[in-house]
Design a protein around this nucleic acid. Structure first.
Lengths: 208, 208
DNA sequence: TTTAAAACAGGATGATTGACCTGTTGGGAG
DNA sequence: CTCCCAACAGGTCAATCATCCTGTTTTAAA
């Protein structure tokens, strides 16, 4: 007769756990975050936690597959689909992130990159799951550059390696911003990135 | 009468600890590495460890100031001084890293970036120490671009923001390489970086 | 030679970690 | 209404963590 009421809302409890874990993993890191801390912040009992996620690994996998992937989807892939070309989308995305971080005050970094950095060396399955998200990101960017090429909007670019470069710039600039707690690196990288893409777009059609 | 012989070599013991810690911190991360693990790998007793580094923080600081900073110095700043211009140095550095990683088999990432990612959110002093290294790196790159500009070797570049871009590309490509355990991102980024710097260098001197 | 302090050895310590266990309650199938 | 299992509560567990302690040996200064 320990007898306390309980909520009995499996989907809600699970969502609360994953949401809390995602936030903590991104801000402090996967390894630095304890199960107890997640339980307390999510107001979930040990029994409920063990029921939904018997091991920390599975919670990590769930966060990667359910949250990190959709974070990349929302902040990168969907804007790419909506914008007229790749440079426009990239500039919009950088601008949104800079504005968000500037008014939020602190920089927690790119969720995908943060997770990849401290999880990759320790868990093969998580590394592969994160690799899939990188691949989807790269594919979306690459396809957009390819489309710009096909439509004549751009010329003289290699979609695949250019997509890799853009991802590297974003990830690296985010890492610098996080390390220095300053959006300056993102601002400068955005400007440089726009400048290096510009000459490849709207090629001068034999001006006289 | 516990009585065992001991080495009594303060500088050597300290160096072994810091070397071992640097290797472990870069490969598995600062938080994921335990003091016991470092002690065992360095063959150092608990007493010696406590004498040289009473707290883990101080070992982290020592690794950052004594090893991470010199790693950046050796792999980036010195080659910059030796090469004729920035693009030559950058291409050389990327090539060296790619070759080294390719023949080593595994990618552990950029020491500075690795340390910054999992330490920055938790310790202000370490974050500032890492920020100083980033600043020195940026300053060296920026100065080289500035010199190239002054010597007429390059034109139409912004040394400061271009240096930030190069650091972001390197850090980001390293992170991708680590996450996917593949040097492809470094290879592609090197090519793209060379291609974007080329038109700014050796400007066509009124060919006809 | 005496002596104080640095350099070490070999544990011990409490706190925290991830995992798990027993018991209880809810909801849905029959 | 009955029965069964998912859903949950609350506490326990061994392992590991960073830290610190007592004692011994070396070094160097006086």
């Amino acid at each position: 007769m320990i007898g306390n009421r309980r909520t009995n809302d499996p989907e809600g409890v699970r969502r609360r756990i994953v949401d809390t874990a995602f936030d903590a993993f991104v801000r402090q890191g996967y390894i630095a975050t304890g199960m107890l801390e997640i339980r307390e912040k999510a107001s979930v009992s040990g029994g409920a936690m063990a029921h939904h996620f018997p091991a920390k690994r599975e919670l990590g996998l769930a966060v990667i597959r359910d949250r990190v992937s959709q974070a990349v989807q929302q902040t990168w892939i969907e804007p790419l689909d909506r914008c007229i070309d790749a440079p426009a989308a990239i500039d919009l995305i950088f601008g949104d992130i800079i504005g968000e971080l500037a008014h939020k005050g602190s920089v927690s970094g790119c969720p995908l990159n943060n997770m990849a950095m401290d999880v990759s060396p320790h868990d093969l399955e998580m590394r592969l799951a994160l690799g899939d998200i990188f691949a989807a990101w790269h594919e979306a960017l690459s396809a957009k550059f390819q489309a710009d090429l096909a439509s004549g909007r751009a010329s003289d670019i290699n979609p695949g390696s250019l997509a890799t470069l853009v991802i590297a710039i974003y990830s690296g600039a985010m890492a610098m911003a996080k390390a220095r707690q300053d959006v300056g690196a993102l601002v400068e990288s955005r400007a440089e990135l726009a400048a290096l893409l510009a000459p490849k777009y709207h090629p001068v059609t034999s001006a006289g």
